[in-house]
């Protein structure tokens, strides 16, 4: 079964002929060349494949592409080119949040999602906000403090 699926990917309208049951992750990586979306566990546990679906975080390994029809998807490569996303990426870089980097695109999406809902999160709230994203390298501390750094650097931007 092949269908036309229309959706907005990183600000651009795309139409793709694909089995609607294909995983969003595979379509993004294999058909649309979004290699910034990483596959870590294939079962929604690790968060490496996180993307924004209508500006809320989802794990793309669990979403069939059919469910994305007429919706909007954003990936980390696009998000880090936006004003808010840049602040997060720069804070991650300066704060020592990045080690092997495989979880980081998903972690950026989690941070973006969190700060869109909560412009001034506490440490507890940050830890909860990224709890769906597994990192094996950092022990999370410098990711948490980097997100705080992004909050401070962004100031009022997170209220917009």
């Amino acid at each position: 079964m092949i269908k036309d699926i229309d959706f907005i990917l990183n600000g651009k309208k795309v139409t793709i002929k694909v089995n609607p049951l294909s995983r969003l992750l595979d379509v993004l990586r294999d058909n649309l060349n979004c290699k910034d979306v990483k596959e870590g566990c294939s079962e929604g546990e690790c968060g490496a494949c996180s993307v924004l679906l209508d500006d809320r975080i989802v794990t793309s390994c669990l979403i069939p592409i059919g469910a994305v029809q007429n919706h909007e998807i954003k990936t980390s490569n696009y998000v880090t080119s936006t004003e808010k996303g840049k602040i997060i990426a720069e804070a991650f870089a300066d704060g020592g949040a990045v080690q092997c980097g495989f979880c980081i695109p998903g972690m950026i999406i989690a941070a973006y999602d969190l700060l869109s809902r909560n412009s001034n999160p506490t440490e507890e709230e940050i830890r909860l906000g990224i709890s769906g994203n597994i990192c094996r390298c950092t022990g999370y501390d410098l990711i948490v403090s980097s997100i705080r750094l992004a909050v401070e650097r962004g100031g009022d931007i997170w209220k917009k």
Binding site: K35, D36, V37, K38, E39, T75, S76, N77, T80, S81, I88, A89, E90, F92, A93, D94, G96, A97, V98, G101, F102, I104, P105, I108
Partner: peptide
């Protein structure tokens, strides 16, 4: 004195190329 890791930003944007990429 800490410096910014040279590979940090490409890992944030997801442009760093792992073998499956």
């Amino acid at each position: 004195t800490a410096v910014r890791r040279v590979d940090a930003l490409e890992k944030c944007s997801g442009t760093a190329k792992y073998v499956s990429d």
